[in-house]
Amino acid sequence: MPVYRKPESIINTAGYCGGCGHGVIQRLIAESIEELGLQDHVIGCVDIACSFWSQDAMNFEFIAGPHGRCASVATGIKKVRPDATVYVHAGDGCSYVIGLAETMYAAIRDVPITMIVVNNGIFGMTGGQLNLATTLVGDKTLSSKAGRKVETMGHPVDMLKNIANCDVAFAARGALYDARHIDETKRFIKKGFENQMEKKGFSIIEVLSPCPTNWKLSPVEAMAKIKNENEKVFPVGVYVDRGGKD
């Protein structure tokens, strides 16, 4: 029987709300890094939103902020420390809204970093406002109280399709709503780190993750929403797997 034990790189409690997916994502990152034997040379890059708490929970060196600029900050780090494992753990507001240019140009430059984007369809840290890229049509947020309207707010966008237009090493979407999908997400994240180890290019893994607090659902209901609603708009699976070396 396999043994399941918290990875040693996680040295503190997760600072998130109950039922938040960020804690699971931290575990998948830590497990992937440890299984690949990379944990002695890691620099993490978190946004100054919810993923910020990761820098206190994980036994790696970290840089935080500015909001939205994680892909650029990680690019700068990787360029001067090419042997370090450099990863981004950031939300969809950072990566797809205020930092869309930064994310797209990290993809266009094919920077060999591992970028994990948490798609929870909302601005969590600021209390639950609309995310232009990921809030579903009709979903109510503090800044779309009557639900997202297409006429004024447009449609949510599958950003991995945009990224697939660029020549990147790997782009995939996972989900956290059950153990099978968590395992699949882990395989994607680990693949992202393997690519970096093998000096392939940019790897991005988006994760459909719940924000029960701001969705105003119980954690169990939030997982059901991902399965029944969010995954329909944001299908899980591999978008790009370039293979080969460089």
Binding site: P66, R69, S72, V73, G76, I77, V80
Partner: peptide, 24 residues
């Protein structure tokens, strides 16, 4: 060294922020 023509000023400075934090 590393030369990057950034996509904008903010991204250029953010890349600098990461590299400078590494001691370069």
């Amino acid at each position: 060294g590393v030369f990057i023509q950034g996509e904008n000023e903010i991204a250029s400075m953010s890349m600098l922020f990461g590299a400078a934090a590494c001691g370069a």
